[in-house]
Design a protein around this nucleic acid. Structure first.
Lengths: 210, 210
DNA sequence: CTAACAATGTTAACTTTTTAACAAAAAAAC
DNA sequence: GTTTTTTTGTTAAAAAGTTAACATTGTTAG
């Protein structure tokens, strides 16, 4: 199950979320076009993704929700849980913690870091906050594999370097500042300003067309 | 300057941000490979993007930072400012406000909305917070064209519908719940859980390979 | 003054991603 | 019991996006 397209990985994660909701509502089977509708994509794409992971549904009955959830889990989850840290316990960091808390047992946010002495030592939504000085040490002792960066832009490069040195294998950078990581560390960057400017561009485009 | 690829639009926004920093530091010209390095992409891609927008640099001197910033502005900015609202003044909403505040004059967050009575009537980082009841009315009177959704997932669909009905032309949905919009409204969705699960997947992949 | 160099601009090739087309088969309709 | 419908699985085509190749041309070096 190696070479799944990046986009397929993203969609699998989304399918699973939608499927979990279906499962709760008691639905046992679902059609490709139902999944597609939820995600604003085509049924063909859903079927293609599922083909790639080797899942086969039942003709005229659709896909077994429970089975599919489990299969997606086998593919994208690790066998043991993965420990995650959030660096920067500002609004964004706390938003993420609330978002994730209690959602997936596979990925658990085990530590937050900040430089603000008022925050250090406290627990926020169940996540203990440590000082940045302890970053390197705790990454190792808590076996943290992924770091989510929600620090101010000016700290981005430094924090990324420290995360890498401490042995993190994946970084999710929410800072507007691109950072560099060596081969072997997976980097995902997301920039909210870009998204907003993109929306603004297409709004303007549409306006101009009239 | 119509059919620019989506990805090019995103990169232009990022180029501009990087260029603004260069400008501040007094740099007047920049090479394609310098821009590329910052954004983790190839110099060819930078040149191709700039070709698409019709900007031409100086041989052996690179691109004029100031000119390029202005040209990107002409393409992705609107002539008049665009008003933006944030719906949901929780951690994420406030994070976004702090992020944007004072950055671009073109896009201005003019209102926030929430259901929490403690927040309504207050101003946060310069943005006044209103009750959700006033949403429809204020969208119109304040001429708000873009809504950023940072509400809990359960409210997503309802809020999106109301934004559309009130006349918003673009929605940026940070809710994990996909929403539907009619043609003519541009929708951009971003899901943090997907990003984290994607990082986790590639971390696991890399681990398995060893 | 000529050759080598270092940068841009552009076409072409390649890769990735999406969409279309259609065969197969279970279920429903008649 | 045959036909129609509906849905899956898969191959093939199309579209979108990236990378490579290379011609061009100021600038620098010799």
């Amino acid at each position: 199950m190696k070479n799944l397209p990046h986009k397929t990985i993203e969609r699998l994660s989304q399918y699973r979320r939608a499927l979990l909701i279906c499962l709760e509502s008691g639905k046992t089977h679902i059609y490709s076009h139902e999944i597609a509708k939820i995600q604003h994509i085509t049924a063909v794409q859903v079927r293609r993704d599922l083909m790639l992971i080797g899942y086969t549904g039942t003709l005229r009955k659709g896909y077994n929700v429970k089975e599919l959830i489990d299969l997606i889990g086998e593919i994208i989850d690790s066998d043991e849980g993965i420990h995650v840290a959030i660096i920067g316990m500002g609004n964004l960091g706390r938003a993420l913690i609330n978002y994730f808390s209690g959602k997936r047992t596979q990925l658990s946010i085990v530590a937050g870091f900040d430089i603000n002495p008022d925050k250090i030592g406290n627990t926020m939504s169940g996540v203990p906050c440590f000082g940045l000085d302890d970053l390197d040490r705790l990454i190792q002792t808590l076996d943290i594999k992924i770091g989510i960066m929600t620090v101010p832009a000016d700290f981005a490069v430094e924090v990324a370097d420290r995360l890498v040195r401490a042995g993190v294998k994946g970084i999710l950078n929410y800072t507007p500042k691109p950072v560099n990581v060596p081969k072997g560390v997976y980097l995902e960057e997301y920039d909210m300003i870009t998204s907003l400017e993109k929306v603004a561009f297409y709004v303007k485009m549409h306006n101009d067309e009239e």
